[in-house]
Amino acid sequence: MRQKIVAGNWKMNKTLDEALALASEVSNMVKDEVNTDVQVILAPSFISLTAVGKLIEGQKRLALAAQNCHHKTSGAYTGEVSVDMLKSIGVSFVIIGHSERRMYFNETNEQLAEKTNLLLQNNIRPIFCCGESLEQREKGIHIDFVKQQLTESLFHLDTNQLQKVVIAYEPIWAIGTGKTASTEQAQEMHEVIRKHIASKYGEAAAAEVSILYGGSCNPTNAPELFACKDVDGGLIGGASLKSRDFVSIVKSFSE
Rank of each mutant, 00 (worst) to 15 (best):
R2K: 12
L20N: 15
S48V: 00
R61V: 01
E25M: 02
D37R: 10
Y77G: 01
S82M: 04
A19R: 13
L55R: 13
A65K: 09
H70G: 09
L62W: 05
A63H: 14
K31L: 06
V83T: 09
E18L: 12
D17S: 15
Q3S: 03
T15C: 04
T36W: 02
K60H: 06
S48H: 15
I41Q: 03
V38T: 15
K31M: 01
A7Q: 06
K11F: 04
K31S: 11
G79D: 03
A65Y: 02
Y77T: 07
N35W: 04
D84S: 11
V83Y: 11
T15Q: 13
G90K: 13
F93L: 03
E57P: 07
V52S: 05
N68P: 08
A23S: 14
A43W: 11
D17Y: 11
K14V: 00
V30Y: 01
Y77P: 02
W10V: 00
L42Q: 13
L86H: 11
V30L: 04
V6K: 00
A51V: 01
H70E: 02
E33V: 02
A76H: 00
K72S: 06
N9P: 09
G75H: 03
M85S: 06
D37S: 13
E33G: 05
F46A: 13
Y77K: 07
S88R: 14
S82D: 05
L22N: 11
V26P: 00
S24M: 12
N28Q: 14
M12D: 07
L55M: 08
K4D: 03
A66W: 09
E18T: 06
K60F: 01
D37Y: 07
G79L: 08
I89L: 02
K14A: 02
V94R: 03
L42I: 12
V40K: 00
K4Q: 14
N13G: 00
K87N: 08
V6T: 02
H70F: 14
T73Q: 14
V26N: 00
L20M: 14
V34H: 09
H70N: 05
G58S: 07
Y77H: 12
A19I: 06
L20W: 10
G53W: 07
L62Y: 11
K11T: 05
A76S: 13
H70L: 04
N68E: 07
G79K: 14
N9T: 08
I89K: 10
V6A: 03
H71G: 00
F46Y: 15
V52M: 08
V91R: 11
A63L: 09
V91C: 01
H70A: 03
Q59Y: 10
K54S: 10
V30A: 08
G8H: 03
F46K: 15
S27W: 02
D37E: 14
L62H: 12
T36I: 09
S92R: 04
D17K: 15
I56R: 02
K14Y: 10
L16A: 13
T78D: 00
M29G: 07
S74H: 07
M12L: 10
P44K: 13
N35L: 10
E57C: 02
A65T: 12
L20A: 10
